[in-house]
Amino acid sequence: MRVLCIFLAVVAFLDSPRAARAEDDLKTILEFTRTKYQVPALAAAVVKDGKLIAAGAVGNRVAGRDLPVSVDDRFHLGSDTKAMTATLAGMMVDEGRLRWNSTIQEVLGPLLPGLRPRFANITLRQLLSNTSGLPPDNEEIGRLYFSPDAVDHPPSDWRLKMISNWGSRHDPSIANVGKFQYANLGYVIAGAMIEKASGKPWERLMYERIFVPLGLKTAGLGAQATFGIYDAAVGHRIDSKGKVTPYPWGEAADLPAALGPAGLAHMSIKDFAAWAGWNAGEGKRGPAILKPETLKLLHKPVVEMQVKDPKTGAMKTGSYALGWGLSKFDWSDKPLLTHNGSNGMNFASILIDPDRDLAIVVATNIAGTRADPATLEVMKSLYAKYSK
């Protein structure tokens, strides 16, 4: 009966004049920002105390076409997927299948003989906090990701082949272990450790352990549009001359499948908000897919970070937890949980204030210099409005 009452209350709110005003206000913010930064589509949603209080989407699924987006359109989340991979790791720890200090050697060593010693001793916690000493993506790592041989292997198998290839030839620099270096390869390795511990592919775990329990019905992996159909906000690239080109389907529409644990999830802005709201609750609300103390541990800072913006040269500071960053903005009174995600064609951003039980998500179907400031501007406006 209590669940029914809550459901009826939510429906009543969504049908109320107050909800309509919130949606209109949000669409006004989104359309102004979308026009200002010339992005094809822009969507955002806000969850407070576990309830969706605002959601909106403006623009088109494909630039230059009259194909309006809706709040049910799927947007690509990029590296915002990392927090989901960290959540799966937390489940394995809760179940005694892994420890935070489980090493690559302990979990994958029997499958991958010949790993170099310092590489083999990297722990799960180091991988998830980007303190393993592994480098950011470089040309050599890129060749592993985009190898033509990858198509001949299931993603789980190719993850192991990439790990073996790299780990048998490279040790992390002693000087870099414990320091923050954003390493997608580290999340690929963490995904493989989760697969070995669970006996299931990472992709299946995402559906069974996160998407289905949290009711994320639009959630999926890979390019967000159905092949041959413009049924989602498809990604776009901008070339050096400013030309915008859509990439709706096929291999070019997303990164290789083996990179899933580092960033290949997609879902609607409302489902993205539901995921964010669950995190904002820090275990106060169901479903109880993690112990509350484990969820809080995922949000706890591990390492200070200073990341140089390659475009402006400015240093971005803050902390990194396990799949989450913590940043103090010039418009926030404290560090907030946040993360950005992009596959080079889309951009998504998430912001969580657990003290206020507030979550904000913003997404667009383009990347680069237009996307980052557009999403940040919307996030700033919504935080100012709903954090009071």
Rank of each mutant, 00 (worst) to 15 (best):
V151L: 09
V47Q: 04
Y182W: 09
P68A: 14
D309Y: 12
E95C: 03
T81Y: 00
Q306R: 13
H339V: 04
L185F: 15
A359M: 07
V212L: 14
A371I: 06
L52Y: 02
G142N: 14
G313A: 13
G191T: 00
Y207F: 14
I269V: 13
I360W: 01
L322A: 01
Y383Q: 04
L115Y: 03
K388S: 14
F272A: 11
V58W: 02
A262V: 03
M315L: 12
V107F: 00
F272Y: 14
R21T: 05
E304V: 08
R34C: 01
F75R: 01
S327W: 10
D73C: 11
W100P: 08
D25F: 03
A120L: 12
A86S: 15
I269D: 08
S240E: 14
A262G: 12
I163K: 00
T338Q: 14
D157G: 06
K308F: 05
S387A: 13
I210N: 05
K82M: 13
L26W: 00
G133E: 00
Y187C: 06
P354H: 07
V69E: 02
E31I: 06
M162S: 09
S319Y: 13
A314L: 11
S349N: 09
D353L: 01
V62N: 03
G114K: 09
D15E: 09
I350M: 15
K51Y: 15
L115S: 02
L52A: 04
I141G: 01
D72W: 08
K284H: 10
F119E: 00
K385F: 08
G114R: 12
A63Q: 11
Y386L: 08
K196F: 02
A276E: 07
V244A: 09
D357I: 06
K196P: 00
D357V: 07
A276P: 02
A384T: 11
A44E: 02
L259V: 11
V307E: 15
H76V: 04
Y247K: 01
G114V: 10
G199L: 04
N176C: 09
